[in-house]
Amino acid sequence: MSLEKQLKLFKWISILEGLSFLILLFIAMPLKYIYEMPQMVQQVGMAHGILFIAYIAGALLLIKPMKWSLTQLGIILGCSVLPFGPFYVERKYL
């Protein structure tokens, strides 16, 4: 796969992972704990988990082609656990 295609795929994964995290935090979790509706957490949580793993794998596969330093990689991986973090990575590093 060409670098251009890898970057495009990782950008999409990054955006979707960020959105799934925000939906999980700001919609699904309040529904679960305020309105006692845990179903959305189960569904969004599974999607987010898969996207999170894809994000980590994608970042690891792009280390060499993008010539990221270990510090940059640490920031990119750290942003995966912060709300809005993947959007920062998409803007700054891709």
Rank of each mutant, 00 (worst) to 15 (best):
L7S: 10
P65C: 00
G49A: 08
Q43R: 12
K67I: 01
K92R: 13
G74W: 15
V89C: 07
I63E: 04
L24Y: 12
S14T: 06
V89M: 08
S2M: 05
L3W: 07
F52C: 01
P83R: 11
L19P: 01
P30N: 07
G58W: 01
M46F: 15
G18I: 09
P30W: 04
A57K: 00
M29H: 00
S20P: 02
L77I: 15
W68M: 03
M1G: 14
M37T: 05
G85D: 09
I53Q: 05
P65Q: 00
A54T: 05
L62S: 06
V89Y: 14
W12G: 09
V89A: 06
C79R: 00
L31N: 08
L16V: 06
M37G: 02
A54E: 07
L24N: 13
Q39S: 09
I23R: 06
T71G: 10
Y88R: 05
M29Q: 03
L31S: 07
L3D: 14
I23M: 14
L22R: 03
K92D: 03
E4L: 07
I53D: 04
V81G: 14
V44E: 11
Q72H: 08
M37K: 13
L9V: 11
I34W: 08
A57Q: 01
K32E: 03
L3R: 07
S69D: 04
L19Q: 07
M40G: 02
Y88V: 14
I13Y: 08
G85V: 08
I56E: 00
M29S: 02
L82G: 11
E4A: 13
G85N: 08
A47V: 11
F26A: 02
E36Q: 15
M66I: 03
G58A: 02
Y35D: 08
L82Q: 11
A54C: 12
L16N: 08
A28H: 00
I23D: 10
G85E: 10
L51H: 02
Q43F: 10
A47S: 10
L19M: 13
L19S: 10
Y88I: 15
W12P: 00
I63N: 04
L51T: 02
S69Q: 05
A54Q: 04
L19I: 13
L51V: 02
P83D: 11
K11S: 13
Y93T: 01
A57M: 02
L61H: 03
M37R: 12
A57E: 00
F10L: 15
L25E: 04
K32F: 06
M1W: 03
K11R: 15
F21A: 14
G58F: 00
P38G: 08
G78F: 15
L94I: 10
W68I: 04
Q42V: 09
C79P: 00
G49F: 09
L51P: 01
V44D: 15
G45M: 05
I23S: 14
L16H: 05
